[in-house]
């Protein structure tokens, strides 16, 4: 696999490597971004190796150990490092498995809304005219609703569950990608290199996706990280409202919803899942800030 890419990319290799090095130079200047990146990689590993890392099965109920506090508090047990929830499930294991759901939601929503948004946005920006008008009006309609409300109602139509929540959130996020892509395509379209490619006989599809699109990617990548973190937040919010992942799934938002009645009795069942959401989203947003600094030529201090 690597050999194939290496041979096909041989002519562009030096410039690509130089660009990567330049990217890393600007990215690593932002200390927070590097911390965010490493923490994010840690979460990815945690999600992949969850069955090996987690001390218990996240859905097994230890009936003799209900609402145990974390180990450092009086009454805590060493087998349950972060305590147990109201039906005796190990908090640490549930939190570890929760990274799987959150990262999965982030990836799926971002991929869906990014590819959909790029496809529609490129068409709108490239062809303009009535296609553009129709597409942009439809996007305006989606944007007229508060995103969480629309997602909530969509899930109510489709039925509660993580899959439907992801579809709803992806649909709600799509217009931002469409607008960004369209704007970028419109500015690139009149550039000389595009005209040159056109004169050389490139067809519409080639012009759209091979000539223009790669030069529009910077703002899209930044928006993608932003929607990755927002997707995690919104899916957790839907879970919290009872419309996302359903119990006993160890999804962080759903865990919070189950823990609500214990807020004054057992701080750990409420505090820990929320903290997990916050830290994950924060790491991704830190990365996003670094990406914006590194990719936005306007901000580069050369």
């Amino acid at each position: 696999m690597t050999e194939v890419t290496a041979t096909t990319a041989i002519s562009t290799d030096p410039t690509r490597r130089a660009r990567l090095a330049e990217f890393w130079y600007y990215f690593s200047e932002n200390r927070g971004a590097v911390i965010g990146l490493f923490f994010f990689l840690f979460l990815v590993l945690l999600a992949i190796f969850a069955p090996l890392v987690a001390p218990h099965n996240p859905t097994i109920q230890f009936r003799e150990a209900v609402l145990l506090p974390p180990v450092w508090q009086e009454g805590g047990r060493a087998t349950f490092l972060l305590g147990t929830d109201a039906v005796g499930r190990d908090m640490l294991s549930r939190l570890i498995y929760g990274t799987r759901f959150s990262l999965f939601v982030g990836v799926i929503v971002t991929v869906l809304s990014l590819t959909g948004g790029i496809l529609v946005g490129v068409i709108a920006g490239y062809f303009r005219g009535w296609i553009d008008t129709v597409i942009m009006r439809i996007m305006d309609i989606i944007l007229a609703f508060p995103s969480l409300l629309l997602a909530l109602v969509l899930v109510a139509v489709l039925g509660p569950g993580l899959t439907n929540a992801m579809i709803a959130i992806a649909l709600v996020f799509q217009p931002h990608f469409v607008r960004l892509t369209r704007a970028a395509v419109m500015t690139e379209k009149t550039r000389d290199y595009v005209v040159a490619a056109k004169v050389a006989g490139a067809g519409h599809a080639r012009l759209m996706f091979k000539t223009i699109l790669p030069n529009c990617m910077a703002p899209l990548i930044v928006q993608a990280t932003l929607s990755f973190s927002s997707a995690i937040l919104d899916a957790a919010a839907l879970g919290f409202l009872g419309m996302g992942a359903q119990p006993p799934t160890p999804e962080w938002g759903t865990m919070l919803a189950e823990a609500r009645e214990f807020i004054l009795r057992a701080w750990w069942v409420v505090t820990l899942p929320g903290l997990a959401i916050l830290v994950t989203v924060l790491a991704i947003n830190l990365m996003g800030d670094g990406l914006r600094d590194a990719l936005d030529p306007k901000l580069k201090r050369s």
Partner: peptide, 17 residues
């Protein structure tokens, strides 16, 4: 940045606690 990343439903519960 922390405020921007905050799951506000959790933030509300924390403040209540």
């Amino acid at each position: 940045l922390i405020g921007f990343s905050m799951p506000i439903f959790w933030w509300g519960l924390l403040l209540i606690i």
